[in-house]
Nucleic acid binder design. Structure first.
Lengths: 127, 127
DNA sequence: GCTTCATATCTGGATACGACGATATGATGG
DNA sequence: CCATCATATCGTCGTATCCAGATATGAAGC
């Protein structure tokens, strides 16, 4: 019962749905999400905590960043819901913009994370 | 996107989850739900409107009562979520009590609906 | 140890939500 | 028509949620 309500709350906010849609495709850190969605880091962080406490997100530290991803156990339920509304989601402009920005962001990962990663030579995957 | 959020809001409140769990088993009218869940009729009615506007409930007038049921199109998504948490739902005491009271209530349908249906000879199914 | 940077938490103000009594609506049946 | 009964809506009040700026935590790297 309570688990269902938590999943419901996870899905009951457009920002969180955008986060889940993005993380279904690839895991991301907070600043990448905040940047792609053009919202403050604190707002995104709070939403991510909500989702984590709802049991739908997992975290893993990777070098300086904390990557968020869909918790494996919750993936079936989330995919079931989101694919059920796949058409509506594909048609959503915010989701499209998110996806574009995320792709651009991922292409820059070798230069570091976040907006001021000039000249940092360390790559994302090799600490 | 918005559809997902509406489904989320539908699931984001324990009262509404109880309603959905009950309606997955059998369609019911407002007063039966209010009685089974021991909440005021106005509260239940409001939740049912929320669920209806989220596109997950259908209504059908039957004699003097309005029966609420799961909208066919939304049934797969709802069943997917609720069966995913079937164990937690079965263990929930409120859900159990709801089910018991509903069964008792349904057995009384021939005597009419609601708490003061003494002596009404009309049955529920044959107006 | 001291910076730096990514993330988390606190703060406050605006908005939304949940419960319920009181009241309105609208179909039913005499 | 008028009364009755099931359901819907309104008004209110307390609580929860959302957002973003300010601040705190805590790992990384010199």
């Amino acid at each position: 019962m309570n688990d269902v309500v938590l999943l419901g709350k996870a899905l009951a906010d457009p920002t969180r749905v955008r986060v889940l849609a993005a993380l279904l495709r690839t895991e991301l850190c907070v600043c990448e999400l905040a940047d792609a969605m053009e919202m403050s880091q604190s707002t995104l962080s709070t939403h991510l905590q909500t989702l984590r406490q709802a049991g739908v997100l997992a975290t893993e530290r990777r070098h300086k960043w904390i990557n968020y991803s869909i918790e494996q156990g919750a993936r079936p339920a989330i995919e079931a819901v989101l694919t059920h509304y796949a058409d509506a989601l594909k048609a959503d402009k915010r989701g499209q913009r998110d996806a574009e920005r995320i792709v651009r962001r991922l292409a820059m990962r070798e230069d570091g994370c976040c907006t001021l990663g000039f000249g940092q030579l360390d790559t994302r995957e090799t600490p």
